[in-house]
Simulated scan of single mutants.
Amino acid sequence: MKKILVIHGPNLNMLGKREPEIYGRKTLEDINTALKDRGRELGLGVETFQSNFEGEIVEKIQQALGQADGVIINPAAYTHTSVAVRDALLLLDVPIIEVHLSNIYKREPFRHKSMVSDIAAAQLAGFGDYGYIMALEALPRLYS
């Protein structure tokens, strides 16, 4: 069974409460449950992880080396600032899909730059929570 690691960055633990007009009303638990359910249907093992701390995200990515067959990551605010997350992702030789609930290109200019988009196999932005499911369904098509 292929193992997929889903990483959620800072403040995503507040989904459903934080700016629901932008991020929707579903909670992170709702999203993780949907991902695990869809993963089972697709024959994929899904592990989810969320942290508000850059170092913990970096460590989780490092631990995925040789363990995960694909990564879905919503770096959240670290999308625009973290060379450390980018460098950790470069360690992995698996497909990576970057996901954003909102369309970062229709928001403030500082959100238009992603530190990971050029190393990701794909980016999904603006599909809300369904973007995670889209990424999960797409990952098996990206295996080499």
Rank of each mutant, 00 (worst) to 15 (best):
Q62V: 15
V99G: 04
G39P: 15
S82E: 04
A68Q: 08
D87Q: 02
N74P: 02
S82V: 05
S102I: 09
A88T: 03
N32E: 14
I61S: 05
L28T: 01
R40C: 03
E56P: 09
L92C: 06
R38L: 06
L92E: 00
L15G: 07
G70V: 02
N52T: 11
R111K: 04
L92W: 08
L35M: 08
Q62W: 13
Y78S: 14
Y78D: 12
V85G: 00
V94R: 14
K36W: 14
S114C: 03
R107V: 04
E98Y: 01
L42W: 03
V85Y: 00
N103V: 06
K3E: 08
V6Q: 10
L44N: 08
E41D: 01
H8V: 10
K60M: 15
E108L: 07
L142Q: 10
Y78V: 13
I96W: 01
L42R: 09
T79S: 02
S102K: 07
I133K: 12
E59G: 13
I57E: 03
G45F: 13
I61Q: 10
K3N: 11
H112L: 00
V83T: 05
Y130G: 07
N11F: 01
A77Y: 00
D30H: 11
P95Y: 02
L91V: 12
N32R: 14
M1Q: 12
H80S: 04
S114V: 12
G131K: 09
